[in-house]
Design a protein around this nucleic acid. Structure first.
Lengths: 231, 231
DNA sequence: TAGCAATCGGATTAACCTATCCATTTTGGG
DNA sequence: CCCAAAATGGATAGGTTAATCCGATTGCTA
């Protein structure tokens, strides 16, 4: 980071004072660690503690959890985009497709926070969502190419990737350290059934909008504790 | 329920007074509703509120959340045992096996609490765990029969069923009301790859003990809020 | 180097959770 | 029908969380 760098905000919203910038970096680094270990449910306070800054500093720099999530995971999402890009360069589209799923799921297994990010959406996290969309566009191509070779079943739907990430998150969250590689077996099972020819029909895909709603709902809960649960 | 029935406690631990017994039933009914909607993370207080009883009544009758979980889900687990039993009676073992998975996953989708129960274990919930074990024994037979016909892949492991439930729980939790049938598609994918001949090898199964540890860990968290997370 | 604005961080508020205490009410046997 | 034992439920303790306030400190500029 060059001094005075503007960490991608719009029109130079005033450079931070040196100590503020230093703390900002510390917070992001701490959040990276804490989110990776505890998932997005980790408290803001625990991040502040890990960073060695006061709670107020935490909230002054990142008024909402979503802003922190954006700052922490936008570059991880960048890596995610790279994974798709690399997959697109594979001369064998099916290989690329399979490799992408395995790598992406491995990223989930390695970072509980990122596992959550892939199954939630945060409308106000601009950078993060912009990169997610970029990845999505690339994935559409990846899927088409894999279908064109005839190795990927025809009824595969882009939103199935989200479902796969949700399933994987379920395994990763439930097993944790106790069985750190269990997810590989489930993902392998799923991949094998993605290969053409299909062994049978599938129930209809839920479609984009319902899944988006689901991801939105999940994301909402990240910042706001129980609200209308009992009413 | 016959009057004076001893709800399966060991040596008749003294019959409850009529009002106490009435409240006990109310609490269980309320918990059934609340857990189904909110999962096992629902608070004891919210159950008490739903039941229309005081918090103290709640805790006097069920001193720990595990005891409440035991009371609420032992009959649902009974239904689960029945599902396996019915599956065993199917003349076509593969049909029975597939039907069992679909039905069991449907039970998860219909009850967020039960979805949690199938991926966690609660050592002190005696009745519940006893029935879980009974179901497990029956499942071993179900699996062997399905393998014997050659329709179920040879490398399928009993603990894979737990993994499937974890994956399904991930989908169910993430989608919720927004896409209530999304799980069907994922489960269908998994089932299709379980059919022999296998399309490829699978990573080694995590094995029973690690998975049990994972389920234990998950179950612990149900009653006790964050403890040593940040220290 | 002086001083003001920016920044800091602990105390605080307000909500929620599990769990316990105890004054009051209810039940049911004699 | 009476009263002791059983059961009740609100108040409360002690824990967590998100979020805000404000006196003390620090950086930077002139």
């Amino acid at each position: 980071m060059t001094p005075g760098a503007q960490h991608s905000e719009g029109p130079a919203a005033q450079p931070l004072r040196s100590d503020a910038e230093r703390n900002r970096e510390r917070i992001i680094a701490a959040a990276r660690t804490v989110f990776a270990r505890d998932g997005l449910n980790a408290s803001m306070a625990s991040v502040a503690r890990e960073a060695g800054v006061g709670i107020a500093t935490m909230f002054r720099r990142f008024p909402t959890k979503e802003e922190l999530v954006d700052a922490v995971f936008s570059d991880r999402m960048s890596a995610y985009v790279d994974v798709v890009t690399v997959a697109l360069e594979d001369p064998d589209p099916w290989n690329g497709f399979v490799g992408y799923i395995e790598t992406a799921c491995a990223m989930q297994a390695a970072d509980n926070g990122f596992a959550d990010v892939l199954t939630m959406t945060f409308p106000t996290a601009k950078v993060l969502e912009e990169r997610r969309n970029r990845a999505y566009e690339a994935m559409l191509v990846l899927i088409d190419r894999a279908k064109a070779t005839g190795r990927l079943r025809e009824d595969f739907d882009p939103s199935d990737l989200v479902l796969i990430h949700m399933a994987n998150a379920g395994v990763v969250n439930a097993t944790g350290d106790a069985a750190p590689d269990a997810w590989r077996r489930v993902v392998a099972l799923i991949i094998q059934s993605l290969e053409a020819p299909a062994r049978g029909p599938l129930p209809a895909s839920p479609g984009h909008e319902p899944l988006y709603k689901a991801m939105l709902r999940a994301g909402q809960g990240t910042s706001a504790p129980p609200s209308g649960k009992s009413s």
